[in-house]
Design a protein around this nucleic acid. Structure first.
Lengths: 172, 172
DNA sequence: CCCATGTCAGTATCACTGAAATAA
DNA sequence: CTTATTTCAGTGGTACTGACATGG
């Protein structure tokens, strides 16, 4: 939603836009603006998940799963913990993702010889093929979107997204 | 639209301004521009879901649930189908969301007198309170992030996100 | 009979918490 | 013994597909 459908919006902004309720802070900033941004964010969230599911049908892996494959492809022998840190997910979440990738034959698990608590991962032949695949991926769609846009805006977006993640991740 | 945001900032671009993102922070994975952007996107996705779960603890509703409340607040008497269309979700997905909101006493269901297949929704007193709530919401965190950023970057981000959603939503 | 609206059943990923097992 | 790494068990929300009941 959001501007994506500005062409034919069946809706929003009835007569009375937000009553400007007791905003705890920045009482004068346009609530509609932030809300509009929120809808853009949720739209991206939903778009990612939908594209992810679609990719699962065609390639056999979801978005997060492929992201793991791409990272492992770049850093063979990476540990589960390091992977969790890079992806900002809880280690227990990664357990499931890694399990499905292993079961699907995309990655191989081995024990760190120097520290046997650690699980290290590398790609299998099938994983390497997936690592190289470009068609029908979520990444392919993102790439198509990015090439339509000026570099400086994409760079600015990355910066904004990073700040957003920081704020969303703050405790409390 | 978001231009109303004050652009006072306390941090003039950290060491790693990003011409072509070198995967700053965490470890230097340097996965390439697009992949690095992908990682940022998934991080936002993850951040939204985590913040959503946190809000569920404090306010009793998740992000998508609150979005429904906000929309119903603006369009009292909206139908389930219309809601699904606006939010770009499958009607069966909405069934669950609406069921939880109804069970929580945030919305009230009624039958369309003119077409009894339709379910129409309005907010309860509790729903109206939630509609106005600003503290402890995902939205509050997003707002805190946005005020730290220059207007032009936030605007660029909105544009990029819109293009992204378009591309992700394409059939093919 | 046919189409529309919405729910239900079944399945899957992701995400968390908290506890446990294993190793350092 | 204490800490670190990872897994496991349990819970819940989102999202889909496909089938179904109901109403127009």
């Amino acid at each position: 939603m959001l501007a994506a459908m500005k062409s034919r919006r069946s809706d929003p902004d009835p007569p009375h836009a937000s009553p400007t309720p007791p905003a705890s802070e920045d009482s004068d900033i346009a609530l509609g603006a932030v809300l509009d941004f929120m809808r853009a964010l949720w739209a991206v969230d939903h778009g990612l998940q939908t594209a992810s599911k679609r990719m699962e049908q065609t390639l056999g892996v979801t978005g997060p799963q492929r992201l793991v494959v791409r990272i492992v492809g770049r850093q063979p022998g990476i540990s589960a913990g390091h992977l969790a840190e890079i992806m900002h997910v809880h280690p227990s979440t990664l357990t499931g993702i890694l399990g499905r990738l292993e079961k699907g034959g995309f990655i191989q698990r081995r024990s760190d010889p120097g520290d046997r608590r650690r699980a290290l991962f590398t790609l299998t032949a099938r994983g390497r093929a997936l690592d190289k695949a470009r068609a029908e991926t979520v990444e392919a769609r993102v790439r198509r979107a990015l090439v339509r846009l000026p570099d400086d805006r994409v760079g600015a977006t990355r910066e904004v997204l990073t700040t957003l993640v920081e704020e969303l991740a703050k405790p409390r």
